[in-house]
Design a protein around this nucleic acid. Sequence first.
DNA 1: CTCTGCGGTTTCCCATGGATACCTGGTGGA
DNA 2: TCCACCAGGTATCCATGGGAAACCGCAGAG
Lengths: 122, 122
Amino acid sequence: MQETDDRPVITGKHRELLDQLLDKWSLQVLDRLCEQGSLRFNELRRSLPGITQKSLTVTLRRLERNGMVERVVVSDRPVAVEYRIAPIGRTLQDLIDALLLWTTANLAGVERARARFDEAGS
Amino acid sequence: MQETDDRPVITGKHRELLDQLLDKWSLQVLDRLCEQGSLRFNELRRSLPGITQKSLTVTLRRLERNGMVERVVVSDRPVAVEYRIAPIGRTLQDLIDALLLWTTANLAGVERARARFDEAGS
DNA sequence: CTCTGCGGTTTCCCATGGATACCTGGTGGA
DNA sequence: TCCACCAGGTATCCATGGGAAACCGCAGAG
């Protein structure tokens, strides 16, 4: 039973970090910011149908706290804020793309599996 | 700046699917099953410190429904059940590894960012 | 002077998720 | 016989998350 695998053991720390990044909106926010580099609050909001101000705010705050994005005050008098993808957030881009690619490729298969499961169950 | 990017637009369907797979325990369950191929219920349970029976049950049901794992009744008299990674679940292995690798590589950086953020805020 | 837009904060509310605990029903061991 | 273990199911409670909506100051347009 003694395997010498170099796969990292997933600890509470890792789980916590993943929880912070893989929640309902963070992935999409990061996706948009990776695409565009930087976006304004309301630009971001408009590009994410269904999100509320509050959800966007807390999502951005959390991402900022984890060093994934940077909040840059562009202008003072008319309050203008830009959210930029941070270097460490940039490193997520490939992962996010891979995730999106995977879902796109496998969505049909998953839906078939669901149909089979639901049919068998009822 | 107008790149015709072929990056898939993330729709509600994609988000729903990712939500089903990236929740609190699914990643770890899939991780274990990818490592071991197949595991019994309580083996799985013991390998995931902190998980409750209920959480494991619903997680496995959801993964089964989405075609990620297969529930195989091995024996009848003493009820024995094996959970196996399904082909479509297998395709997630690289992604999960990449995710784990990323967290391992960037955990320290994230924690520094958090410290900076928390210090600046208070 | 009102309306809109910007970038939020605050409050309220509800659904979901997780934890705790107790149920089954069969098996094997002391 | 009694007990623990297996593989779950069920009931209940509670914390959290996320949505809806109101409110904030500030600025420019009409």
